[in-house]
């Protein structure tokens, strides 16, 4: 795994306020890295610094293992905050500018306008677009020339539910093509569905970071229904299978110990003569965990 982005001790102060404070992160090739945090937690500031538009007060960052140069940014597609385009230029002309800077053939423009459903508005001035369309053009510009790295700051901002799903699908496609994606979001659901890694930010500091399924999803809730629920309930407690367990009529609700999987549980029940009518794994609500973490 090669390192794409390394952030070391990054700090940005506005007056006496720390927008971000001593932030460090490593993002490796192929990661879909979510930066999750409530509004004002420093997500946009962090991404603005690593894309070169604002200067850090302290600290440094490296792209592709070297100090950032303008040419590093030609390998990155980014959408920071809201999309900023020339209002009087058409979508095509705006993307033409991006192509010229990055040295991308102009024929790629139609491709990205196509995948973001903007082809019909190709020659409209940017200013005539709706909010959702502007956002989609931002995504189109970021994806132009199929860069190795995508930096997306709240890409689904202002999109309708359909647009939401489309953008998510696009991100997943890019990720499966081996692209590195850095995604800032305040929407847990989004991070959970698309990211492999996550860092949770609060007031400019990283509270925790790691793989999404380890960090946020470790305690899945398992629901079992069986006729002999009392006996199974006892057996599970005695066998040390659970972290938490409760029983209501024929249904047992539990969270498994970290070394056990729902499959193990099924096998154990079967071998001990319990027939399970139902076994169901419920992903624990991220919402509650997230709120817990940022409290």
């Amino acid at each position: 795994m090669s390192e794409i982005l390394r952030i070391t001790g990054l700090t940005k102060k506005y007056g006496t306020l720390f927008a971000i404070n001593d932030l460090s992160l490593n993002i490796e090739k192929g990661n879909v890295f979510g930066i999750l945090g409530p509004n004002g937690s420093g997500k946009t500031t962090t991404l603005s610094i690593v894309t070169g538009i604002i200067h850090p007060t302290r600290g440094s960052f490296q792209w592709f293992g070297e100090n950032p140069r303008p040419s590093s940014y030609q390998r990155i597609g980014s959408l920071i905050e809201t999309p900023h385009f020339y209002p009087y230029l058409s979508l095509y002309q705006n993307l033409q500018l991006v192509s010229k800077i990055k040295g991308i053939p102009l024929k790629e423009i139609n491709h990205v306008l196509g995948i973001t459903n903007l082809l019909a508005r190709k020659h409209s001035p940017f200013i005539t677009l709706s909010l959702g369309m502007k956002q989609r053009l931002g995504i189109a510009a970021a994806m132009l020339g199929s860069p190795e790295v995508l930096v997306l700051d709240e890409p689904t901002n202002g999109l309708d539910p359909e647009g939401f799903a489309e953008v998510r699908e696009l991100i997943l496609q890019e990720a499966s093509a081996g692209k590195t994606i850095i995604l800032a979001s305040h929407i847990l659901d989004e991070v959970e569905k698309v990211c492999s890694h996550v860092a949770i930010l609060k007031k400019g500091k990283i509270l925790t970071s790691g793989k999404v399924h380890e960090l946020l999803l470790k305690d899945d809730l398992v629901r079992i229904t069986t006729i002999k629920s009392d006996e199974l309930y006892e057996a599970l407690i005695r066998g040390g299978w659970t972290k938490t367990i409760e029983k209501e009529k024929n249904e047992i609700r539990l969270t498994l110990s970290s070394d056990k999987s729902p499959g193990d549980l099924n096998e154990f029940a079967f071998k001990n003569g319990f027939v399970l009518d139902k076994i169901e794994v419920l992903k624990q609500s991220l919402e509650s965990q997230f709120l817990e973490i940022i409290k």
Binding site: G52, P70, S72, F85, N94, V98
Partner: peptide, 17 residues
């Protein structure tokens, strides 16, 4: 003021350019 300078810089134009 339109922040289009961001479009230039984030896509790889240097500030000198």
């Amino acid at each position: 003021s339109f922040k289009t300078s961001r479009l230039m810089i984030t896509n790889g134009l240097s500030r000198n350019e």
